[in-house]
């Protein structure tokens, strides 16, 4: 029931995403524009060539980041865990940039796969630095490790862009944190990638619930914490890699979505993950719509909008944490 309401809300936002923008489309015209193809109609070109790919990209990146944040927070028992804050986005962006610079411009599909090794390594690094592999990542330790890793990877990104002129082009296209170039990305493949990550997370859901009770009880319940953790890292990698390849690094979405999902669905993990996917997609689309409408005909990138929204939420969550509490 609650998931149906969330789904209905997402559909409403999707409609809004198709209608709103520098060139408004009247709701009454939507069915006609989608119905028959007329390449000379500018409204139809706007809708099919620009807004629909943007919509699809927002769905993929938003759902994937919401799920990635949910999984990271469950595994680390840390409400500040987020692929953007803890360097997983930055890892994906850096490996994409590095690979594209070294290999030259390959086709978009193979380039976008380059996000995966970076996301995976960064996720592994932040979990092990933060003590997550031992199952006792306190909020402070994990957050510090992640922030340090994030800063390090972002400085590597800047270094690469400064050193190599062609990196700047790659950077502008891939790493801007925006849905604007969505039409030129291999959306079908990336949607499949994100879907794999989300399905894996859903399959792991009961084991993630066990893991969140502590390592000893998780094993008493017949799960293998090491395997669950490996599966969780893979799910985070697939989701984050796909999201970064679709939209560049978008921070704070994975931070804001899980507490909302938990408030709506409680601590049940599978429902929470579905809610996180719906909420993530909805919020990213809203951020994109707002960015389009605020200063027309210019745009504010969706990544900037989520940061505007996410910064205060980060402070709010951090203030609620009590020192020394395992949270």
């Amino acid at each position: 029931m609650r998931l149906l309401l969330l789904g209905a809300g997402l559909v409403a936002i999707m409609l809004l995403a198709m209608l709103a923008g520098a060139r408004g489309i009247a709701p009454a015209d939507l069915a006609a524009l989608l119905g028959h193809y007329d390449p000379t109609d500018p409204a139809q070109i706007t809708l099919l060539e620009i807004r629909l790919p943007r919509l699809v990209a927002g769905l993929i990146a938003g759902a994937a980041l919401g799920v990635a944040g949910m999984v990271m927070q469950a595994v680390t028992r840390n409400p500040l865990a987020d692929p953007g804050l803890l360097g997983v986005n930055a890892g994906a962006a850096f490996s994409l940039l590095l690979g594209a610079t070294l290999l030259g411009r390959g086709d978009a599909a193979s380039l976008s796969l380059l996000t995966l090794p970076g996301a995976g390594l960064a996720a592994l690094a932040v979990f092990s630095l933060g003590g997550g592999l031992a199952g006792d990542a306190g909020p402070v330790r994990l957050t510090l490790a992640g922030v340090a890793l994030n800063a390090f990877l972002l400085s590597l990104v800047s270094l690469l862009v400064l050193l190599r002129r062609e990196s700047l082009d790659v950077f502008r296209f891939w790493v801007a944190g925006s849905l604007a170039e969505a039409g030129q990305r291999p959306l079908t493949g990336l949607a499949l990638l994100a879907l794999c990550g989300i399905v894996l997370a859903l399959l792991l859901a009961p084991r993630l619930e066990a893991l969140s009770l502590g390592g000893a009880l998780a094993r008493g319940l017949g799960t293998h914490p090491g395997r669950v953790l490996a599966g969780a890292l893979l799910a985070v990698t697939l989701c984050t890699g796909a999201a970064v390849a679709v939209a560049g690094p978008i921070a704070f979405l994975g931070l804001v979505v899980p507490p909302l999902a938990r408030r709506i669905m409680g601590t049940e993990m599978r429902g929470g993950l579905i809610a996180a996917a719906l909420l993530g997609a909805g919020l990213l689309l809203l951020a994109d719509i707002a960015g389009r409408l605020l200063i027309p005909p210019g745009e504010i990138r969706a990544g900037v909008m989520t940061a505007l929204l996410g910064g205060p939420v980060f402070l709010w969550i951090a203030r609620r944490l009590r020192p020394g509490e395992g949270a």
């Binding site: 028992r77 409400p79 009961p206 084991r207 619930e209 066990a210 969140s212 009770l213 502590g214 000893a216 009880l217 008493g220 319940l221 017949g222 799960t223 938990r262 409680g266 601590t267 049940e268 395992g326 949270a327």
Partner: peptide
Amino acid sequence: ARRLAILPQSPVAPEGITVRDLVRRGRI
């Protein structure tokens, strides 16, 4: 785990969990 259960000394309670949701995890 279906035949033998252990309650460790200091298990971790997820934030905000209800009694029912906690007990449901025993069915994992």
